[in-house]
């Protein structure tokens, strides 16, 4: 769980608990020893595209990805 002192700060920065826990999880993953570390980092790849809709029309989709575009 989040430590008591930190909560107001990341909330004020506009983060949700999900973002906060992801950052923490990534930190832990980076603490692994080598063969496991790269494995764990490769496993957690993010890629999807989000499109907002305004008045029944899709806006341009934004690609959320941590891998460079090919």
């Amino acid at each position: 769980m989040a430590s008591n002192a930190a909560v107001p700060f990341w909330r004020a920065a506009g983060m949700t608990y999900i973002t906060y826990s992801n950052i923490c999880a990534n930190l832990v993953r980076n603490c692994l020893k080598e063969p496991h570390k790269s494995e764990a980092l490769v496993r957690e790849k993010v890629h999807f595209s989000v499109a907002k809709w305004v008045d029944g029309k899709p806006q341009k989709p934004i690609i959320r990805s941590d891998t460079p575009e090919d």
Binding site: H47, S49, V50, A51, K52, W53, G56, P58, I63
Partner: peptide, 10 residues
């Protein structure tokens, strides 16, 4: 389609 807020693909 008027009620769709966000669509997520890929």
């Amino acid at each position: 389609k008027k009620d769709i807020e966000i669509s997520i693909t890929e």
